[in-house]
Design a protein around this nucleic acid. Sequence first.
DNA 1: TATTGTTATACTCTATAACTATA
DNA 2: TATAGTTATAGAGTATAACAATA
Lengths: 158, 158
Amino acid sequence: MASSPTGKKADVPSVENVDTSYLEGLVGYNARRAALAVIEVFLERMAIYDLRPVDFSVLSLIAHNPGITSRQLCGTLGILPPNLVGMINALEKREVIARQPHPRDGRAMGLHLTESGAKLMRDAERTAAQLETEVAARLTPGEARTLIRLLKKVYLPA
Amino acid sequence: MASSPTGKKADVPSVENVDTSYLEGLVGYNARRAALAVIEVFLERMAIYDLRPVDFSVLSLIAHNPGITSRQLCGTLGILPPNLVGMINALEKREVIARQPHPRDGRAMGLHLTESGAKLMRDAERTAAQLETEVAARLTPGEARTLIRLLKKVYLPA
DNA sequence: TATTGTTATACTCTATAACTATA
DNA sequence: TATAGTTATAGAGTATAACAATA
């Protein structure tokens, strides 16, 4: 309600303060805004490692799942295979990961961290943990756990 | 059969079930997954109105803020001005919005819903409310309110 | 001098079709 | 026949620089 007819002109309303209450009542809108806010800080902090969020996710999954295949990465992260190829090639060229033939499937290649990749991820995961602490600082520890639990209820199949 | 691991080969591990527990402990990862899950359903439901999530957000803000300017939309939704121009033009061509000169700023144009635009948004907001009900069905009503409250604590400046 | 709206443009992200080699 | 990985390419989304009209 910000129409301000200060005179005799045609009553064309203008807006002083934008009312966002409707959008702020939607789960999807809030989830998207929160994700973008966290990712923005994530981008800044990971820049020193030259890692985007998706690179971090890929390397973290390889770190915790040595021998994981490209197809498994795609399925887990919702990335399409053609779009993963370039990332994997780049990470291999940087010598943070290495491909090894899959032990039981001649079509597939198992992905592994190199030693320098393992060191990089130790540092990067420490930075990520630090960032989590800061994000969670806006919440109580209990609220942070609750938030993650509720988000999982939203996106994980019931 | 590319290799028969009889025990002598190099011990190359492979992955049966991908361990995602590390990533699932991060707020940003979960917020992003939840946002993408909701937006995916949103895309499907809004297809009958030929509205993407961003179009819905823009029209909803115009509906609740008659006379809002492009610049105000950009600031509220985090869209860059050059990227809004095409959207506004398309919505005007569809005759769901109309531009009127801003009553006190000759540079700006106030944005308004047309009658057909108002009808479209009545239907679209009803569909969005229905979707929210379904998303929230995975949560209790209290959990849904808590989720939105915690998400806001994450992305709104303290 | 600063701001609104705009054009042009580049870069990133995501999506589709088709090929190869193995299963 | 189906799947893992790859190539090429198209489309959508997001970014910066610069300009005209107005403040």
